[in-house]
Design a protein around this nucleic acid. Structure first.
Lengths: 222, 222
DNA sequence: AATAATAGTGTTTTCTTTACACTAAGTCAA
DNA sequence: TTGACTTAGTGTAAAGAAAACACTATTATT
């Protein structure tokens, strides 16, 4: 029987944690990218991420990179998949431990930094490394998860209309939903409450505004 | 804005692919373990796995380790989660990319090697490294996946009775299932066919034997 | 005052899931 | 050879979940 291979045989790769961060802007699903400053792929758009440090936990690395590069803090991150890739020359072997998360659009956009941008998934630019693969994989996971969880509530701003929530779900699932069935199911989650305020957005009846009842445990479901 | 950290800052860890391999023996869920021959944890039971080699893909590494250590070949492996751990001394940082898979019990048991053993999950010995955590995580994934897929059909031998399939599902889910409902749902998957043979196993009516219709695409579902 | 646009609301139908009990076919022992 | 025992095998009814479906309400605009 073969055993654990000889020590000379295994390699010493670099490990990164990279996050596919989703939001919805104008009913369209978007992902956050940051512009790389150094080689390789200097100047390219990439997912926020960093090399892991000695003694650092994977989750912590993903959270730290996100905080450093985007200012986002303390959001729910879920590990997605680990990708192995190989780059010629001195960069060598890289393992990407991919994470994904959802945030309200407003959580990042105020920071008007040219090196951070939301990209619509429907017209994504080329990304550095294998980040396009990571993003595609995260998008599939997102669509699958949303089927059986209240996960997408994490995408919402402070207050919102039910039509806006429906737009988020439709953007993620890529299909139209029935208004009455959607509202019934959403309210049955018992996570929303009415604010009493209304929002006027055109020459028509204004919509009631809602807020999340308990912002704490979102995304844990499922 | 902070950027990708300095090159001196990141570390060069070891990366392994380890597989939680499940089967069912006598209606009980079991996992395959191999005995470690070298330090650290020499003599302990561990999950089959190995350090990844230069240029090797993660999936290939998991498959190779499994083939070398157990003789199993060409089974469906699904990546589960990546764990980071740290061991004092010269072993340093290790990342375990965990996989999980299901096989018919007979696929491994004939090989009567003292250094390979199926362990009942209900009375698992201490395992090397963080392999108990990996196994616990894999068991949760298994239970979740089986809810909405035909995954557990991968656990079956060449031919089998419906009662045996039900025992597999009951072992994984940890609850009793209704015989009629189970059979109806199972046959509705349209993956089984009758062999025409029967199996006598006691002083009672013999059971019809079934086989898988298309052994190829199991586990892909869900 | 009429028009246009989105907000908001229940019921019916269909499908899925669950609960539930008896007959069939074999072995074994008296 | 017959009765007792054991597991195999089968259908239907009820409950619950999901899907289909259309009209009234409220505001701005002209």
């Amino acid at each position: 029987m073969a055993t654990i291979s000889a020590e000379t045989d295994y390699i010493q790769p670099a490990v990164t944690a990279d996050t596919a961060l989703f939001s919805v802007r104008g009913g369209e699903l978007v992902a956050l990218t940051v512009r790389r400053e150094r080689e390789p792929f200097a100047g390219w758009w990439a997912l926020p991420g960093d090399y892991i440090r000695a003694e650092e936990a994977l989750d912590d690395c993903a959270a730290r990179a996100l905080a450093e590069q985007t200012g986002l803090d303390a959001i729910y991150l879920e590990q997605l998949y680990t990708f192995a890739s190989h780059y010629p020359g001195r960069w060598g072997r890289v393992f990407n431990v991919a994470y994904f998360a959802l945030v309200p659009f407003a959580a990042v956009s105020p920071r008007n930094d040219e090196n951070i941008a939301w990209q619509a998934l429907s017209r994504l630019p080329r990304l550095a490394f294998n980040h396009e693969d990571i993003l595609a994989s995260a998008r599939r996971r997102l669509a699958a998860k949303i089927e059986y969880s209240a996960l997408a509530l994490g995408l919402l701003p402070e207050v919102f209309t039910l039509a806006e929530v429906q737009a988020v779900y439709e953007a993620i699932k890529g299909e139209r939903l029935d208004k009455r069935n959607f509202r019934r199911a959403l309210l049955a989650l018992d996570q929303l409450e009415v604010t009493g305020e209304k929002r006027q957005s055109g020459a028509h009846r204004p919509a009631r505004l809602y807020r999340l009842r308990e912002p704490s445990n979102l995304g844990i479901i499922g």
